[in-house]
Simulated assay, not measured.
Amino acid sequence: MNGVRGRTWASARTGVLALLWGSTFLWIELALDALTPVQVTLSRCVLGSAALLVACLASGRRLPRDRATWGHLVVAAFLCNALPFAMFSIGQQSIDSGLAGVLNATTPLWALLIGVLIGAERGLRPVRLAGLLLGFAGVVLIFAPWRTTGPVGWGALAVLTAAASYAAGFAFMGRNLVGKGIPTISLSAAQLVAATGLTALTLPAGGLTAPEIGPKTLIAVLILGVVATGITFHLTYRTIAAEGATNTATVGYLLPVVSVALGVVALDEAVSLRTAAGMAVVLVGVGLTRRQQGSPAPAVNLGSGRRERPTPRRWPETAASTAGRTAATPE
């Protein structure tokens, strides 16, 4: 029963994370109506870090204090926050929000490649590899790079850079921050504080002009910062701690479904039959990447009063996921 509940909670967390993360592109699109890319990036970092700092203090947690942890947080903040946030804002000046979500769905492929290169992915099961490749094929079907017309160029390249940066950031966080005995709420709040500092340094590059913010833009910026950045980023940290960096990146394959749907409903962006078929392929790919082998095994008493589930056949192991599940701290 514990195994069933654990998988149910993991699936629910993945669905919520995909919904919130996928909505990010809509809020960025609306915020760009009045703000520059630098202003959008800084505002979401400020609001996201403020929301998580309040949650951190309310839960009785403290921010990390040692210099080594903060050094790792600064690197993670650049890879997983400051750089990709800026690239999305720049990229969405020339491409639709739906396409931005589609291109961001390449994050799992970058994560798998990085995991293989750094040795974090061992014994990758064929069914999971097939799911990753099938999911990428769905993204390609949606993007249709063989077409001679459509939104391509620097905007698309910026979003692809963001997707690769996310993957590198997840891997770095899994190896250097998760599983060190620090609560994830403390880590996520501190990392967004660091990202705010890094982004503030870019204000001279287009962020000093006073914007004219209307009610629609204000609401979009608030939701982008508090919900789509603060809450979503904390959920991302929790998922990395529970399932590892590569598994967390597979959430990216669900983003095209959310981003394209929201683009159609809220922004009147067009969607074709080919795009719908691609999204269906994406969903099948996600199902394969998260498929479990065998029946849930009972917990094993290790003799120290602690109970852990054996993992060899049920979880696709990575160095990050092993550390995260063993040392994750309750929030």
Rank of each mutant, 00 (worst) to 15 (best):
V300T: 09
W154G: 12
V178F: 09
R290P: 01
T69L: 00
T329K: 04
G207K: 01
A171K: 00
V265M: 11
W154S: 14
G181H: 07
G71D: 03
G197R: 02
Q39C: 11
L53N: 07
L20E: 00
A276S: 02
G294L: 08
S304I: 10
G294W: 05
P183M: 06
G48V: 02
P211F: 10
C56E: 06
G206S: 08
R309S: 13
T148R: 14
S272A: 11
T199S: 08
L99V: 00
A163F: 05
V16R: 02
A105L: 11
M173V: 13
A319E: 15
L19C: 07
V300Y: 07
H72T: 01
T236C: 14
Q293F: 01
L83H: 02
L99I: 10
G3N: 04
L187P: 05
L109A: 13
G22E: 06
G15D: 04
I240K: 09
S321L: 09
L117M: 14
E121P: 07
L20P: 11
P316F: 12
V54D: 02
S188R: 06
A299W: 12
R128W: 04
A319W: 07
A137M: 07
R274A: 12
G138N: 03
N301Y: 10
N247W: 05
L103Y: 03
A328Q: 13
F143C: 09
G119E: 03
V281P: 04
A241M: 10
A158I: 12
G98T: 03
V193G: 03
A297I: 11
A190E: 12
M279G: 02
T24W: 03
E317L: 08
G263F: 09
V46P: 04
A12E: 11
L47Y: 00
A200E: 08
A163I: 11
P256I: 12
V260S: 01
R125Y: 09
G15L: 12
G131K: 00
M1C: 08
S97K: 09
G305Y: 09
F143K: 07
